[in-house]
Design a protein around this nucleic acid. Sequence first.
DNA 1: CAGCCAGACGCTACTTTTTCGCGTTAGGCT
DNA 2: AGCCTAACGCGAAAAAGTAGCGTCTGGCTG
Lengths: 192, 192
Amino acid sequence: MSARATTRPGGRSARVQQSVHQAVRDLEAEAGRDALTVPLIAARAGVTPSTVYRRWGDLRELLSDVAVERLRPDAPPDDRGSLRADLEAWTVQFAEEMSSTAGRMYIRDALLGDPEQGNAARCSDYAAEQLKAIGVRAAGRGEAVPDVETLLDVVVAPLMYRILFRPSDLSEAYAGRLVAAALGRTAPSPGM
Amino acid sequence: MSARATTRPGGRSARVQQSVHQAVRDLEAEAGRDALTVPLIAARAGVTPSTVYRRWGDLRELLSDVAVERLRPDAPPDDRGSLRADLEAWTVQFAEEMSSTAGRMYIRDALLGDPEQGNAARCSDYAAEQLKAIGVRAAGRGEAVPDVETLLDVVVAPLMYRILFRPSDLSEAYAGRLVAAALGRTAPSPGM
DNA sequence: CAGCCAGACGCTACTTTTTCGCGTTAGGCT
DNA sequence: AGCCTAACGCGAAAAAGTAGCGTCTGGCTG
């Protein structure tokens, strides 16, 4: 039941949501993730704690909402001229972002405070959208395009699994191997 | 820094840990996961809340420890006579257990309350051990054995990814497809 | 355009949880 | 057997979270 843009931008609800989200980001940067509490955030946002509790239920759900926003890709994937190059670039970047300390925190927060798993699903949708965009572009070039579901299984899932369950096991080479496995071993991309 | 068997069995610490863990399991069964609080658990376990806070830090870490225990496999994987059959049986069972409501809760708890990710790594180790056992058995039969790391990537990771990020997307057929992909498309197991 | 109405917020009092300091006890070790 | 450290119990204080009630915003109807 995480709260989201339920009213028009400009309304009071929207203002409250925005200032609370901003307060979370500010305090996280200033005091660190572990120092966050609902009363602290509420004070910074200029609202009363009860408002936060009513809207988000608890700190975890609020952090989950904020984390999902931060995980949203801000641009379509780079165009490197070929499916393989696009996929390799995207995968390496994705792996780097997600396996960073901050990235791992966001993923955990997003998964964590989210009984209905709506936020988790959104994270997956973000990745799927990016992969889809890469696929559409490749199809425009006349390339054979792997299924998005397959890419999620073969590229995204192993990365996430290692990030979540085996924090030490990650490297750029590994990301490259996943892409190679997804596309078949035929000729590794030039430039890599 | 999750607390674990730091002292010998029989010592006071061990008794406290055991009674607290048992209290968690009991209360979870009686009152449900959401009703759990530290004071409640402490009372049930016959210790003071401060003991729990000192030892586990907070409720999430305690639940994480308990969850990992429950995720530990209690028996080696079934022997069905061939690598493919063993792998299929194990995968289907694993998927069922992990995607159940209870299983998902345990996974989330285990991942969640664990800053250093030690418990998460242990979950992965459990799966790796089971796969390893299947592999050793297959090698004894003279079969070619896929790498455990590969199996984690191709079978376990996609299952976990879907369980965590896409709660609706799971079926037994999907589990079977993952195994087929891991072993190559050569002849699906009879009996399936 | 005025006025109504539902939803959201602020405030306050109250309950529960969490922290902290200090004295005590268990159990490992020489 | 006796010491020494780590862990526990207890109680007070601080912090977080809950609940009720009045107020206000802003969308909607007439």
